[in-house]
Design a protein around this nucleic acid. Structure first.
Length: 349
DNA sequence: AATACGGGGCC
DNA sequence: GGCCCAGTATT
């Protein structure tokens, strides 16, 4: 697209955004004289990594209500932040969130350049560009999954992802304006989310269809992607050990799957063999009727739940949590499912 | 460049 | 059941 056409594209896109921008809790309205609070932009961008807007909304509100500034968040206890993040997934984000908040609070405020933002934990190329653009008005080149899709269709890029990323970023750079770069980036993302959708692209309603190489030419086939490997199966055993009104919880190691999160005691999740039992207490265990089936990014898990009650014995030390309050224990979804199944199954006895 | 890393909603 | 989502860190 020529420079002249790029200018016309930017105008058409921003005119559309001025009317159709999604109202989101972390946003300021389009064309606003003020830029949004960098803390809110950062927090929303971390939560939005590989996570849909609808899911993020309630978590975002909870976090900003409980920790209104980066300094509040920096002063929070790790376990409180992780528990508040429970259910949102990709828990390394929560651990990096804490580290980043402390780094930023220590230096006083968020840096305003893409290069400095990129140095912070949990902030990669996309997020650095997004914060620089949206919160600091810099003409950074913002490219997320939405914008890759829009570029693929606008320029009919037939090269499959991820090889096409370089070309897509170059095309996005050609289109990035000096004025209102944050609105431009958000407009492209809104376009991708509401018009230039993965399936059922609404080309008739698209403000930039006159610039697009894919309109009327099966836009849904773009971007092309390399096929993914099949998900292997893994198995594991989790243990629901009760004593009186309480159940035993553990904290998982800081690195790896569900790292740092509260959990039920469990075996490692293994492929191609039965898990080796690893009960947290030697007693008589009984299997819950059905296993929990849970799909992770790179494997499918069948988790058998074993239950036992040792109320008659002295209580071993550990992280005992009231069963009645288990939904507030900060369990990731896998173990929340397991807890629900175990508690429900015992109810039926 | 490839892999690990969640979870939910949609078709 | 596969695809997709405001990706990053590690190897």
């Amino acid at each position: 697209m020529s420079t002249i056409a790029a200018t016309a594209f930017q105008s058409a896109l921003l005119d559309w955004y001025d009317i159709h921008a999604r109202a989101l809790p972390w946003r300021v309205p389009p064309g606003s004289a003020r830029t949004p609070d960098p803390y809110r932009v950062w927090l929303s961008e971390i939560m939005l990594q590989q996570t849909v807007v609808q899911t993020v909304k309630s978590y975002f509100e909870t976090f900003v209500s409980r920790w209104p500034t980066v300094h509040h968040l920096a002063a929070a206890r790790d376990e409180d932040v992780l528990a508040a993040w429970a259910g949102l997934g990709y828990y390394a984000r929560a651990r990096n969130l804490i580290a980043c908040a402390r780094a930023v609070s220590g230096r006083g405020a968020f840096p305003g350049t893409e290069a400095e933002l990129l140095e912070l934990p949990g902030i990669g190329p996309y997020t650095a560009a997004a914060i620089a653009s949206i919160a600091f008005g810099r003409p950074s080149v913002v490219v997320d999954g939405n914008i890759e899709r829009v570029m693929a269709r606008l320029f009919a890029i037939e090269t499959p992802l991820p090889a096409a990323k370089t070309e897509m970023k170059a095309r996005a750079a050609d289109l990035t304006p000096r004025r209102r770069p944050g609105d431009h980036a958000q407009a492209l993302m809104d376009l991708g989310a509401t018009i230039c959708r993965p399936k059922a692209a609404a080309c008739l309603a698209c403000p930039v269809r006159q610039f697009c190489a894919a309109t009327g030419n099966a836009p849904e086939r773009l971007p092309r992607k390399l096929s993914k490997a099949a998900k292997p199966e893994r198995r594991g055993i989790a243990y629901w050990l009760t004593h009186g009104e309480d159940v035993l919880l553990v904290r998982r190691p800081d690195r790896g799957l569900l790292g740092g999160m509260r959990a039920l005691p469990a075996t490692p999740f293994v492929a191609d063999r039965e898990p080796i039992p690893a009960p947290p207490f030697e007693t008589e265990w009984k299997a819950v009727s059905k296993p929990v089936v849970h799909v992770f990014t790179h494997f499918r898990l069948e988790l058998t739940i074993m239950t036992a009650d040792i109320s008659a014995m002295p209580r071993p030390s550990g992280d005992w949590h009231p069963v009645a309050d288990i939904v507030n224990a900060g369990l990731p979804t896998l173990f929340a499912k397991a807890a629900k199944l175990a508690a429900g199954d015992l109810l039926h006895d």
